[in-house]
């Protein structure tokens, strides 16, 4: 029995050593990040009384520029959101106004979801902001995953620590937990329905859950994903908001 355990540990140790967490993350970034992309999405928010879905179309370029147009429901249709670096503008067609969201407002939840505007704006590559450490292997469903612990290497970041479960074959995260400095869990994301899109694996359904609040979380489903398409420059201008 004892021998068996020792063999087990040795084997595990070899397997762990064989994987450089930095390299894993690089591969994940290759899957998850792109020069630019566009996709359509449906966000389902479970409120206390009812659930509702909001669909939108988004374009993004690098990590600094993104543009989202809401398609439904009718009340949100035509609302557009532009993010350039640290700034965020929202345009509403009913009022024909462009409102800048800044400072404290960025911390508010977007449309009652478990995501804040800030969460939406944080899309730096994991390798740019976190140092990774491989801490083990686990199974999620029938998939084998590496468990990486990420610790922030930059200061201006909302979540000091993350724990990421990465599919050992497809190199996509299947679960992500966001922690406070103290180690208190704050948010959890489950990434599911991993599909092959343009020769990369990509999770098309993300379930966000704010762990401090009661509630069922927010589902974010992406369809029609296209990577590295040419996006006209005018998309990322304030003028585009009004069109």
């Amino acid at each position: 029995m004892k021998t068996l355990m020792i063999i087990g540990f040795v084997f595990l140790g070899v397997a762990l050593r064989a994987q450089d967490p930095k390299k894993i993350l690089d591969k994940v970034d290759q899957n998850m990040s792109s020069e630019n992309r566009m996709f359509e999405s449906t966000m389902t928010i479970h409120g206390k009384r009812n659930s509702r879905s909001i669909s939108s179309r988004s374009w993004s370029e690098g990590s600094q520029k993104s543009f989202t147009e809401y398609l439904s429901p009718a009340s949100e249709k035509g609302t557009k959101m532009l993010k350039l670096e640290k700034q965020l503008w929202i345009y509403s067609p009913t009022t024909d106004r462009t409102i800048q969201i800044s400072g404290h407002m960025l911390r508010q939840s977007v449309m009652g979801s478990d995501l804040s505007y800030e969460d939406m704006m944080e899309d730096r590559k994991l390798t740019d902001v976190y140092a990774a450490k491989l801490v083990g292997e686990e199974k999620i469903g029938d998939r084998n995953t590496w468990v990486l612990e990420l610790t922030a290497v930059v200061e201006d970041i909302a979540y000091y620590k993350q724990k990421v479960w990465i599919d050992t074959e497809k190199y996509v995260p299947l679960r992500q937990e966001l922690f406070a400095k103290s180690g208190q869990i704050l948010k959890r994301m489950e990434l599911q329905e991993v599909k092959m899109i343009e020769s990369r694996w990509f999770p098309t359904l993300v379930i966000y859950k704010d762990m401090l609040k009661e509630g069922k979380g927010t589902e974010f489903r992406m369809t029609n994903i296209k990577f590295n398409v040419k996006i006209p420059d005018y998309i990322f201008t304030k003028a585009a908001l009004k069109q």
Partner: peptide, 12 residues
């Protein structure tokens, strides 16, 4: 700019 009853963005 506020929040609608079901959590959406309210503009008027």
């Amino acid at each position: 700019f506020g929040t609608t009853m079901d959590g959406g963005m309210a503009f008027r």
